[in-house]
């Protein structure tokens, strides 16, 4: 009996494809952001408001992932920018191969921002590198403020936490201070932003953050 020491990534094949995507994004100066949250936290509405706020000549595209239906691509496709649905047919996350396939036929040279809306899930998408420059986690105030403690994987990796639906704060017992404290306890460098895509409150900060990320890299 002999033991062979190894250091092999179990998701090495996904990581290899993601590294290829990252190289392509860098070669064309495309900033790629991976939006992750629970189902119903407001990813699609935020992206709708985001696309609706861009000038028509903005070089942006969206990939949106769901287990079934192309409903989100229909919603997001109304704003005149390239949008593609990735339907995972049961898989609870996007992986790098899905993104690679979904990009077929798109000229990355014509983009400077690629937004990926992951499948609604705070666990599984955490494991899969998509070649993104940053992960962004959304947490709606209708969820518990202890989500960062319950799902430390994504909150420890995300560069930005967006607290959504803040127009509902008067009606729900969500403690913003606690949510931020829990998240920064895991990830002290994390940026935090509060907004309501419904009312537009805080949307300006989000758009400024995106512009900065697209122009200068991660803030």
């Amino acid at each position: 009996m002999s033991r062979i020491p190894l250091e092999r990534k179990v998701l090495g094949e996904n990581d290899r494809i993601a590294a290829g995507l990252r190289e392509r994004f860098a070669a064309h100066q495309v900033r790629c952001l991976n939006l992750i949250s629970s189902p119903g936290s407001g990813k699609t509405l935020l992206l709708e408001k985001t696309l609706g706020s861009f000038r028509p000549d903005r070089r942006v595209a969206v990939l949106t992932g769901d287990i079934q239906t192309d409903n989100d691509a229909v919603r997001l496709g109304r704003y005149g920018f390239p949008v593609r649905q990735i339907t995972t047919a049961g898989a609870c996350h996007l992986d790098a191969r899905m993104v690679d396939r979904a990009l077929e036929g798109w000229q990355l040279a014509g983009l400077d921002l690629l937004l990926i809306e992951n499948v609604g899930n705070l666990v599984c998408p955490t494991s899969y590198d998509l070649g993104e420059e940053a992960k962004i986690v959304l947490l709606s105030v209708t969820e518990g403020e202890d989500k960062p403690l319950k799902y430390p994987g994504i909150f420890s990796r995300a560069s930005l936490m967006v607290l959504t639906k803040i127009d509902l704060l008067p009606y729900v017992p969500f403690d913003v201070g606690k949510a931020v404290e829990y998240a920064r306890g895991l990830n002290p460098a994390m940026d935090v932003m509060e907004l309501s895509a419904m009312t537009g409150q805080g949307l300006g900060n989000w758009m400024a953050w995106l512009d900065s990320a697209a122009t200068h890299g991660m803030p």
Binding site: M1, S2, R3, I4, P5, L6, E7, R8, K9, V10, L11, S127, G153, S156, R157
Partner: peptide, 13 residues
């Protein structure tokens, strides 16, 4: 930690 790594194999020689 964040690792998900195969770190050894034992072989029947």
């Amino acid at each position: 930690g964040r690792d998900l790594d195969l770190i050894y194999l034992e072989l029947d020689d």
